[in-house]
């Protein structure tokens, strides 16, 4: 990637000659890397879990992580975190790991791709009504768009779409800007400052992962709450 390429989508690794639209770019490659790390790491640690009071340190790490996510979900939704844990937890873990790996030279965070953030936001966009309907049925959920008056229907729809768009663009903008600023600073001040910016980037990446997951949970919680 050079200074011109601001999205990993543009870094094509492989492209089908038959269907040129089918291609493997850096976004997909690094996404699979992140997925592989998460899945293999989870499998490696959870293959010998114990329910004793004395547990291995890696299991302890995972339990702290999962317990933290569950507590956050419970704090936001006031519901049992069980049904939401896989979706919201995966959002957080994927974004966090994807962003944290930015410290590795040559790696480009897939979250710096608008395609990725849009895909994640779309997943949230779909998940909100799915959880709402799963909780209390279709009719009850759809009534939400007619509240407080049917006249508000267009605005509710616009709000739904706009917050999905905001979700996608917020993450993309933050991640992309961090990479761009780092690239620009390297051209001006090659020493020290880029390191500070890398640290700032790690912090920003974690904050963005947290914000994205919590906002997703807030949207889902509002859907289930309204359904009540």
């Amino acid at each position: 990637m050079n200074g011109v390429q601001i999205s990993p989508d543009e870094s094509i690794l492989w492209q089908s000659e038959v269907w040129p639209v089918v291609k493997i770019n850096a976004t997909l490659a690094f996404t699979w890397l992140v997925m592989a790390l998460l899945v293999i790491g989870s499998w490696w640690i959870t293959r010998r879990l114990t329910s004793d009071t004395k547990i291995p340190r890696w299991q302890n790490l995972l339990e702290v992580l999962v317990t933290g996510i569950r507590d956050q979900i419970r704090d936001v939704s006031r519901h049992d975190p069980g049904p939401y844990l896989p979706f919201v937890g995966t959002l957080f873990l994927f974004i966090a790991v994807a962003n944290l790996l930015s410290i590795v030279p040559g790696y480009v965070a897939p979250t710096g791709s608008l395609s990725t953030t849009a895909a994640l936001a779309t997943c949230v966009f779909v998940a909100v009504p799915v959880f709402g309907i799963a909780s209390h049925g279709v009719g009850e959920y759809l009534k939400r768009y007619l509240q407080p008056t049917p006249l508000m229907l267009p605005f509710n729809l616009i709000g739904e779409l706009s917050r999905t768009l905001a979700l996608a663009v917020r993450l993309y903008g933050n991640m992309m800007s961090g990479a761009v600023i780092a690239a620009i600073l390297i051209s001006f001040v090659p020493l020290f400052i880029p390191i500070v910016m890398q640290v700032m980037g790690l912090l920003t990446g974690m904050i963005q992962a947290y914000i994205f997951a919590v906002l997703a949970m807030v949207y889902i919680a509002s859907a289930t709450k309204v359904a009540k």
């Binding site: 976004t27 997909l28 997925m35 998460l38 896989p86 608008l114 990725t116 895909a119 994640l120 779309t122």
Partner: peptide
């Protein structure tokens, strides 16, 4: 937005949810 990447990422995310 690269729509192929977009679609692939949706699928990737859903697969990741299942795997995790």
């Amino acid at each position: 937005i690269d729509w192929f990447t977009f679609t692939a990422q949706v699928i990737n995310f859903l697969v990741l949810v299942g795997l995790l």
